[in-house]
Structure formats: C-alpha cells, structure tokens
C-alpha cells in the first residue's frame, strides 16, 4: 500500500512537471508567433517616422536616425483626412447596424424555421459569395447609376449592408442553439419574432460580436467600392484617401504608413471593446455541433 501511494505521488509529480514544461513551451511558441506577427507593424511604425526616401533604404534601420513626428501632423494637412474619417465612420456604422439586424433576422429563418425552398434559397445565397465582385461589378454599377446613387455614401451602404456573408455566419451560429429551447418557447406561446428577440440574443452574443467586428473591419478597409463609386473628394473614404499618397510620379510611403496606423485605431477600439463577449463562456451558448 505504501508503495502504491509513493508511485501515485510520483505520477502526479511527473504529470505536474510535464504540464509545466508543456505550458512553458506553449507560451514560448505563442510569444514567438506574436513577435512574428508584429514585425511588419514595427516596420510600419518605424517607417512612419522617416522621410520617404529613407523608408526603403536597403539596410533596414529599425530606429530612424531622426524621428519625424511631424509626419503625423502632415497627414491631416496634405489630404483632407478628417473628412475621409468621417465618411468612413458613417458608412461603417450604418452598414454594421443594418447588416447585423437583417442578417440575424434572415439567418433565424434559415436555421430554425421550415419552409418551402429553404435549402435552395440558401444555396443561392452562398453561390453569390463565390462570384468575384469584379465579375458583377459592371451590371451593379450601371444599376446604381440609373438609380442615382452614384457618388453618394448611400451607394456604399446599399452594396454592403445586405451581404450573404452575414446571413451565412449567423445561420451557422444559430444552428448550434438547441431547437428544444425554441420549441419550449413556442409552447409557452412566444411568437417567432419573440423568440428571435428574446431567446436568441443572450445565447449568441459571441456570434453577434463576431459579425459586428467583421462587418466593421470589412467596411472600414474596403478599397474597391469607394474607389469606383465615390469621385468627389468630399465623399471619399480613408482607404481611397491613402492611395493619394502614392501617385505615379511621386510617393509618400512614410505618410501612408502614418495614416494607416492612425486608421487602425478605431478598428482596434471596436475589437477590444467586444472582447468581453468572447470570454463569457455560457455553458450552452454559441456554437455547438
């Protein structure tokens, strides 16, 4: 008996040691990967403080000789960056709200309701994701123009607020929520609308947070759409504005880096503020098999 206890303790000690080694290894790998991920950003920061011809100097200087902090002021002066920010914020916020609402609405139907043609219609949705935007861009453009939306911020809203992607994402998440919950609610007399409004949200917070992040980021970083539809300077967005720093006959890479870093801020704020929804592990929430 004494022998068994000793062996038991030994095993536990060995296990604890193994666990420690495993943990340390894990952290080492994670930190290594994180550094690898961050290198380009360090380069961006360092470039944003240089002069344009220094940015691509062959032997990389991580810390610039002279820190040109004025670059961060220059970007607001050289192009109307504030206007661009306002436009981009408007589009991003409106699209995110519209997309989240309509997508979760539609996704509920696909995930929890039975109706004729459900699967065919859903396949239809997914297939449009498959067509590259360059392919149907023209008919879309002609349509937008004839409706009078050309060169308006609402054009961007119309293009992005009703995407199939949001529906797809939410539908997958909703599929994980047990149908019994919905059944029970139905028996209790709750209408479908009620179920959507009362039962689903608490259980899909992580999902909604995900959709918000992705929609916001996607809209914020969209380049092709604003480039084609927004011509007046007063309407342009940040990504398009950044390109003004690279023209065929001159380039201001240092300013592009500075402006890119600044434009990262709002997105980071959104991301960080939604993090708490990922930490709350509700026992039967979110996705399930």
């Amino acid at each position: 008996m004494a022998q068994a206890t000793v062996t038991g303790k030994q095993i536990r000690k060995d296990n604890a040691a193994m666990q420690l080694v495993g943990n340390v290894l894990l952290y080492v790998v994670l930190i290594g990967l994180a550094i690898f991920t961050l290198i380009p950003f360090v380069w961006m920061i360092s470039s944003s403080l240089k002069l344009d011809q220094e940015v691509f100097q062959y032997s990389i200087r991580w810390i610039p000789e002279v820190c040109h902090w004025e670059n961060y002021q220059l970007i607001w002066e050289k192009v109307p960056l504030l206007t661009y920010f306002k436009n981009t914020a408007f589009i991003a916020i409106v699209v995110t709200i519209l997309q989240t609402l309509t997508s979760s609405f539609a996704a509920y139907a696909f995930a929890k309701l039975h109706f004729k043609g459900r699967d065919v219609l859903f396949l239809c949705y997914i297939s449009t994701i498959a067509v590259p935007w360059q392919a149907y861009m023209l008919p879309q453009f002609i349509m937008m123009r004839s409706v009078g939306l050309y060169d308006t911020l609402w054009a961007m809203v119309a293009l992005q607020a009703f995407s199939a992607f949001g529906v797809f994402l939410m539908r997958q998440f909703y599929q994980g929520i047990p149908t019994d919950l919905c059944e029970a609610a139905r028996i209790d007399g709750l209408s479908e609308y009620g179920i959507w409004a009362r039962i689903m949200p608490p259980l899909s917070k992580a999902a909604i947070a995900t959709l918000v992040i992705f929609t916001f980021v996607g809209t914020w970083n969209d380049y092709m759409g604003p480039m084609i539809y927004l011509t007046q300077d007063a309407n342009k967005t940040v990504q398009v504005g950044l390109r003004r720093f690279i023209q065929e006959y001159s380039s201001d890479y240092h300013l592009i880096m500075a402006a890119s870093l600044v434009s990262l801020l709002p997105v980071s704020i959104v991301f960080l503020s939604l993090q708490k929804y990922f930490i709350e592990g509700i026992a039967t929430s979110g996705l399930k098999g």
Binding site: Y136, A158, S163, A164, V167
Partner: peptide, 18 residues
Amino acid sequence: SFLAPNFLGFAIFTLVPV
C-alpha cells in the same frame, strides 16, 4: 417575413447583378 429585409436588399443589389 424574416427573410424579407435582408433578401430585398440582397436581391436588388447583389442577386440581379450576378
């Protein structure tokens, strides 16, 4: 009715061009 809001926008601005 659940599908309508999203589908309308989707049909007009995406499905038709596709």
